[in-house]
Design a protein around this nucleic acid. Sequence first.
DNA 1: TAGTGGTCTAGACCACCCC
DNA 2: GGGTGGTCTAGACCACTAA
Lengths: 229, 229
Amino acid sequence: MRTSYLDIKADVLNRIRQNIWPPGAGLPGEIELAEEFGCARATVNRAMRELVDEGILERRRKAGTRVKASPTRNARFSISLIREEIKKAGAEYRYALVEREIIAAPGWLRALVKIPKGGEVLHLKCMHFAANTPYQLEDRWINLATIPKARTQDFEDIGPNEWLVREVPFSEAEIAFSATNATQDVADFLDQSEGDAVFTVERTTWLNGENITHARLYFARGYKMTTAL
Amino acid sequence: MRTSYLDIKADVLNRIRQNIWPPGAGLPGEIELAEEFGCARATVNRAMRELVDEGILERRRKAGTRVKASPTRNARFSISLIREEIKKAGAEYRYALVEREIIAAPGWLRALVKIPKGGEVLHLKCMHFAANTPYQLEDRWINLATIPKARTQDFEDIGPNEWLVREVPFSEAEIAFSATNATQDVADFLDQSEGDAVFTVERTTWLNGENITHARLYFARGYKMTTAL
DNA sequence: TAGTGGTCTAGACCACCCC
DNA sequence: GGGTGGTCTAGACCACTAA
């Protein structure tokens, strides 16, 4: 069989693990490696590019390829729809709208996403349940200047995230994970106690520089976000 | 200029944003796209592969390429050495060993990572400071059966993570993020109050199926883990 | 079983950047 | 300035899988 870029990746990783190429060490050039592995340079190139992508190697033109001195491994999380997350776990999903109001954007939100003074937003609070147990409280603001059609959506039967994903494309998104103490309000919804540690996700999305929406997601006790490297 | 795979990516993304190719829609085959863009199929292929990697498209042989119906965008976090994380933020880094003991692995740890009964582990507690402010408390167990040379390391001047990264390669790792309420012990180290919400990372690594180490990292108040994509 | 993506090749030109 | 990686091409064969 011809040597695959996967073979090369595995081989390079092995040499790093066996300290043949310790952290900081320089690797041979692509042409040399291609000869050694008996394949085309493009094949070596792909293997190397993926290892860079995974945070193992670093490359610069002229300077060559080296093993990263301090390996920043890249963790990846696939953020899916909560409906599917729950279904995949084998539980029944239920959604409920808790609050819906159209208001002038509060100051903190305007500062966060650059909404002009007096700009209107649709503020929604929703609950997501797994097997009738509170799973996530969603506190969301939708910018009505950029998404006017949200004004006529009642969101009684479909969550705003699911609706947005289907109706509104976005170009940039920011996600932040943190831990917060549950306020009385959050605790009530999640069926916990005030002060309980709550895993919190903040998510903001934009389309061509225009803010679309900002959301805070509060997860019920015991939630863990996991990944493998 | 010849068309680049980046041009193709941008163009495809635009068509998705303009709902020319709505979620679930099928795209033309690679050959057809290559003709349209006036480039080689390999160029189209690379563009498409990267869009799959980013969670925008899905492809299957014979079935073709389509826009993901429920877009699971992939968030990426680069996990770097805490020293560099702090330095990059422009603060001075300081490390301190708090506790060091060699003990028989406790039951919960043995269950978690399959250490035989009576197996010894090195248990370490360390503090990481940014500008003399508590930044992270590290609670770590190192499996002495797989990493015997850790037994003679005092870890007074170098953190266990940094030492491990330099000395011990690993093949698999798991990371989990969660929120926990600070115990009195954790709160004391982080200069917070008991019960405060603490962003917590659990990390376990293996080399060829043998457990190397397990760690719990408690971050000080206000810590956020962020990404952009 | 036929169509689609997955991969490899051999060669080429180019852009960047360290020396 | 020259060496290294970055990318593109035109062609080929292969692997998977939906129809």
